[in-house]
Write a protein that binds this DNA or RNA. Structure first.
Length: 419
RNA sequence: GUGGGUGUAGCUCAGUUGGCAGAGCACCAGGUUGUGGUCCUGGGAGUCGUGGGUUCGAGUCCCAUCAUCCACCCCA
């Protein structure tokens, strides 16, 4: 084999690719139903946008970015996530000057240079939702509800929601100091000690048992929230209760990106191995200012399409794949093939999905093609039919077959397909 | 970046102490020169990941390398 897909890039081809579209469709529908509009943003941006937006101290920025210099000498980076780009676009085009919040969804690939493993890829597919311009906790709950609806629409039953609040610019610094004070007294490796100084909250997320054991008595964020953050957090939870969306409070949930404030949440699935997070999001009330914009709060989430597909498969859910076409043309001989080509075109123009056998296959091979296409009807056309000005219309389920004048094929099939 | 597992036909895999490279599925053709699914018969296919070494002889043993999978760190 001469060429292979780049390392860590999953590909979806038929028949499995149908699941990919179904996942996107489920979330797009949930977002659109909640009044969110589509936004198309670049796959690459100025490197500085991500460095400042996502955070200089994050793993994503320090070691996972696909960064390169373009021919004009500019440093550009393939997006490692969507939020920074969506917010940049919102500000650049003054979408926030209209009525708030600005509600947007988008989808596509993101890129992180990591060592691939189950559910972790260098090109990952995300579905993304952002609500920009309000601090109303109802919008926090709304984004959660959209993600939840998407999972439900796909039939997933084992998705767990974990919820936390990271505080704001007023209460986070005190908590951060208290946490650092605690962490500095622990027995930690060099990399983790550095993290204590740069981004202590992320130490709480460590999965290693030897670290975890030492964190049992660590100060937790919910105990250090200021009055307004506490009230915000309580309101979000009350609203989730109203919607009967079950969640689990997780005071150690911090997430890896620097811009999160107040509400953070994560969805995970128990059957996915080590990479179990299938979606996550939170509030980013300071991000706009971080990237040079006005004060503009926001909240959003991304769900991982690749991992959701793995979850669908892990739960053994069948995604119904409709037949490729409704009608399949079976020509016998060159003259018939030419006539059939036009007939198939007519069927398509009439809104009937149709395909035909190509490459002068034998009748038997062509019928096989009809069978595999999933079509409910075959149209068979040979010398005898041409001479009579008819074609044989065959119901592939029942085997019934009858001659129909060529001029009436389209209307006849239209009737038979709706009945 | 670190650790471990696996690379043989399109797919899933078998291959004994080193001795002619195989099966199932899929695909194609025929059985039926104008009829699919089931059945029967036949067929095409592989530089055994790649490069080197040991040997009369390597899919099998050794070394290197690449790819892939799983895990750590971290994240969707």
């Amino acid at each position: 084999m001469m060429f292979q897909a780049p390392k860590g890039v999953p590909e979806y081809y038929p028949p499995r690719s149908a699941i990919f579209l179904a996942v996107r469709e489920a979330f797009a529908k949930a977002a659109a139903n909640a009044g969110y509009s589509y936004i198309e943003v670049p796959v690459f941006e100025d490197t500085a946008l991500f460095a400042r937006g996502v955070g200089e101290s994050t793993d994503v920025v320090t070691k996972e970015m696909y960064t390169f210099t373009d021919r004009g000498g500019r440093s550009v980076t393939l997006r490692p996530e969507f939020t920074a780009g969506v917010l940049r676009s919102t500000l650049e085009h003054n979408l926030h000057q209209g009525q708030l919040p600005v509600k947007l969804w988008t989808t596509g690939p993101a890129f992180r240079y990591e060592q691939p493993q189950a559910g972790r890829y260098r090109q990952l597919q995300q579905f993304n939702v952002e609500a920009i311009g309000t601090e109303d906790p109802a919008v926090d709950a709304e984004t959660i509800a959209i993600a939840w609806s998407g999972y439900r629409a796909l039939g997933l039953t084992k998705v767990r929601l974990m919820l936390n609040s990271l505080g704001c610019r007023n209460c986070r610094p005190q908590y951060r100091a208290a946490l650092q004070d605690f962490l500095r007294r622990l027995d930690l490796d060099e990399a983790t000690r550095q993290r204590v100084e740069i981004n202590p909250l992320r130490v709480l997320d460590d999965k290693r048992p030897e670290v975890r054991a030492q964190l049992a008595d660590a100060p937790l964020i919910p105990d250090h929230l200021c009055a307004s953050c506490k009230s915000h957090h309580d309101k979000v939870r009350t609203l989730l209760e109203d919607l009967s969306i079950p969640w689990e409070d997780n005071p150690r949930l911090v997430r890896g990106l620097d811009y999160y404030t107040r509400t953070t949440y994560e969805f995970d699935h128990p059957d996915l191995g080590a990479q179990s997070g299938i979606g996550g999001g939170g509030r980013y009330d300071g991000l706009s200012e971080d990237i040079g914009g006005p004060r503009l709060p926001g909240i959003g989430f991304a769900v991982g399409v690749d991992r959701i597909i793995l979850a669908i498969e892990a739960e053994g859910l069948a995604v119904d794949t409709p037949p490729r076409v409704a009608v399949y043309g079976v020509p016998i001989g060159e003259e018939a093939a030419r006539r059939m080509f036009a007939l198939v075109h007519e069927l398509r123009a009439a809104g009937i999905a149709a395909d035909m056998a190509y490459g002068s296959k034998g009748l038997k091979g062509a019928m096989k093609g009809a069978d595999r296409s999933g079509a409910s009807h075959a149209v068979i056309l040979g010398e005898r039919d041409l001479a009579a000005g008819t074609a044989q219309v065959k119901n592939l389920q029942t085997g019934e077959q009858s001659a129909v004048p060529l001029a009436e094929i389209v209307t006849t099939l239209k009737e038979r397909l709706t009945s």
